[in-house]
């Protein structure tokens, strides 16, 4: 149990944990994003937690299954034929 809450950037650590993932996804409003960024600049624990989540996101996107360019090109050609009214 935490004996006290560190207030940084107008937010406690619990507040930051509540919105951290949305913040990293760019899904918070500007004011919240500013407060979280300010807190992370001053709080080592939360900054480390933020780094873990960022690395998870980077790892997941790195593991993105590649798209076969031939498939994509084939779909593009199909789309172009649709746009010309050749397929309906």
């Amino acid at each position: 149990m935490k004996l006290f809450k560190k207030m940084r950037g107008g937010l406690s650590c619990d507040d930051v944990m509540e919105v951290l993932q949305s913040y990293l996804d760019g899904e918070t409003d500007t004011e919240t994003a500013r407060k979280v960024a300010s807190h992370l600049d001053e709080c080592t624990d939360c900054d480390l937690e933020s780094s873990v989540y960022q690395n998870i996101r980077v790892s997941l996107s790195t593991n993105k299954a590649p798209i076969d360019p031939v498939v994509l090109d084939s779909l593009r050609q199909f789309g172009e034929r649709v746009s010309r009214g050749e397929i309906d």
Binding site: L40, L48, S51, V52, Q54, N55, R57, V58
Partner: peptide, 9 residues
Amino acid sequence: AALPRGATR
């Protein structure tokens, strides 16, 4: 593992 990758905000 959080630190080496060096992801930035």
